[in-house]
Design a protein around this nucleic acid. Structure first.
Lengths: 343, 343
DNA sequence: TTGTACGCGTTATCAG
DNA sequence: CTGATAACGCGTACAA
């Protein structure tokens, strides 16, 4: 039978609808026997409660929503799994929502908030520079995971991430320590105000610290229209750079970009790391299997996922205010980087 | 203001609720001026209609649902994008639903059907061997995309995919043509009844056609518990195979498995393709950037996405019965395979 | 412990 | 063209 409702179940059981409702929602005020009987009938009838009606009625759902911009980014895949695990522990359900690259994540958030009534939200991806007032309109606690805003204030948002500035500096210093002084950078569009900017700044800072001039011509920015941390982008940017620039290392601000760059180098007949070192960022699983395996900054995904969930749940309970949480990335030295060849 | 409803808008505009509803839903029976006025007020008030209420009331939503088992599989990412594009063309919206690896996709489907009332569904991933009667319970047209069931009958389901048997045979023949006669196979668990089985059979058929004995010891099956087309799995299976078996080529039934295998070979000190050829399946973007780039069977993702959407929409309109649609894969010969070295 | 009746925000029907 | 009003399926006071 297709359109079964709580009424049908009630009739079948010879009880009132509220009793059925109580049985389903683990209410205390119900005779265990009645409850079991009802539950059994429900199972047999494969009745599924209509969630629209539930959400309409309930002030909120025991759930959080996770908004992902850039699904297919395997990096987020791991984060999502971690978040789902944490939710399960707390008895929350986890609503996953994809955000198209061209869509505004906050509009989607508003939409989801209204429709699903989650008690909180986690944002993955996007650059998230939104007016504070519009954020407040959401009316529920929010945590940015892996996205670190450029601003110092929290804007009412929780933030869990690595220190993109410091980690980027760390990577650059590592490359410098290998003797590279002409390090090409593959990064987000010029307009970027979030991790792209921070990673660029970390790169500049490291150069500055070592008295090495920052050369604008060694920086390849993505197109604003394109704005994707993808293989092709890395390939394209590296290709362009190879045409006329001199460098002995490429620092790509994501592992996907790095892999794209490796391919471009290989096609140019260059060996990695002998002729040119390549470093990435993120610590995607893929990088470990690439040949050569990719030197990178590993973001502690598990920790970030858990911390994001914890912070969010605490914010929901009112036990904690929005704050910035920083975790340390780990420099993973692998096969794609080596000392600069002297001649 | 947080909880704004259609009533608030109606009051603000000095009209009745039904007029507001008409304005929002492009109803014909409404004065264009009134409509514009209402729409303007709505925009200014950033009011968002409550979708739970909508779905509760509406018999169905102008939407289809896409269920993905194994998000993070970049291959599905492309399919999803394609499907979303097709939906947009038809003025449909596309509900994306993640299915955890351990969950039953059909239960999730039942749930989504009830909650969102989509007019149809597309399934990505999973092996989908479900009792026909339970499928029918869904009550809406369904299309399996990229999953080809082993059975000949449609079971009421539309199916759009490559011919996994033939394509697998094609790849094996290609490897045989290179002179390899000891081809290791990395594949799904023994119990698999869907693409895993078909691809295994294609492999066997090719061997048979060429009078080459099928050697069980050259086949590495995933664990049933693990059952994932992942890098680690490929790595682990290849590693195990390397311990004692002799072979000159590996045919992995997915590109991810192939890449994992490549890593294992490299660690064993073997060069690809000189010492051992490696072939994959799927045509993931990644494979083109890998070093060496991976020889594979490219599934025509764009076509499959479009065809899945078309078939589903036709089934929805009642213009077409469920059927099996086969598209041809393309053998992409790349760097990871070469003629068997004679000595 | 259980059942009745109301209301959640929307859309569809029907009478103006 | 517009407005009142009855559903949609469920949760929950409140009464029993």
């Amino acid at each position: 039978m297709a359109g079964m409702t709580i009424k049908d179940i009630a009739r079948k059981c010879g009880v009132g609808v509220s009793t059925v409702s109580r049985a389903m929602n683990n209410h205390p005020d119900i005779n265990p026997e009645t409850k079991n009987m009802i539950l059994r009938v429900i199972a047999e009838s494969n009745y599924i409660p209509n969630n629209s009606a539930r959400n309409l009625k309930r002030s909120d759902a025991r759930a959080i929503a996770v908004l992902v911009k850039g699904l297919g980014n395997t990096f987020f895949g791991e984060l999502v799994s971690g978040l789902e695990r944490e939710c399960e522990k707390k008895g929350y359900s986890c609503i996953l929502q994809n955000v198209e690259e061209q869509d505004n994540e906050l509009d989607v958030a508003l939409y989801v908030a209204k429709e699903k009534k989650p008690r909180g939200m986690v944002f993955l991806g996007g650059n998230f520079s939104h007016p504070k007032e519009k954020i407040e309109q959401l009316g529920i606690p929010c945590v940015l995971s892996t996205i670190c805003t450029y601003e110092k204030e929290t804007q009412g948002l929780g933030t869990v991430s690595v220190d993109d500035f410091q980690e980027s500096r760390k990577m650059t210093e590592y490359l410098l320590s290998l003797g590279h002084d002409r390090i090409a950078l593959l990064t987000a569009p010029r307009e970027d105000e979030s991790i792209g900017k921070l990673r660029l700044m970390g790169y500049r800072q490291a150069l500055l610290d070592h008295g090495i001039p920052f050369r604008e011509e060694l920086v390849a920015y993505m197109d604003a229209s394109e704005d994707k941390y993808s293989f092709v982008t890395g390939y394209r940017l590296a290709k362009k750079l190879l045409e006329e620039r001199e460098f002995t290392a490429i620092y790509a601000t994501s592992d996907t970009l790095a892999i794209g760059a490796c391919r471009a180098l290989k096609e140019a007949g260059l060996n990695i790391p002998e002729d040119c070192s390549v470093a990435g960022f993120d610590g995607m699983e893929m990088g470990a299997y690439y040949i050569p395996s990719i030197t990178t900054i590993r973001q502690p995904v598990e920790q970030i996922a858990r911390a994001s969930a914890d912070l969010l749940f605490n914010m929901i309970k009112g036990k904690e205010k929005p704050k910035k949480l920083i975790y340390e990335g780990e420099l993973l030295v692998r096969e794609s980087t080596a000392e600069r060849k002297r001649r």
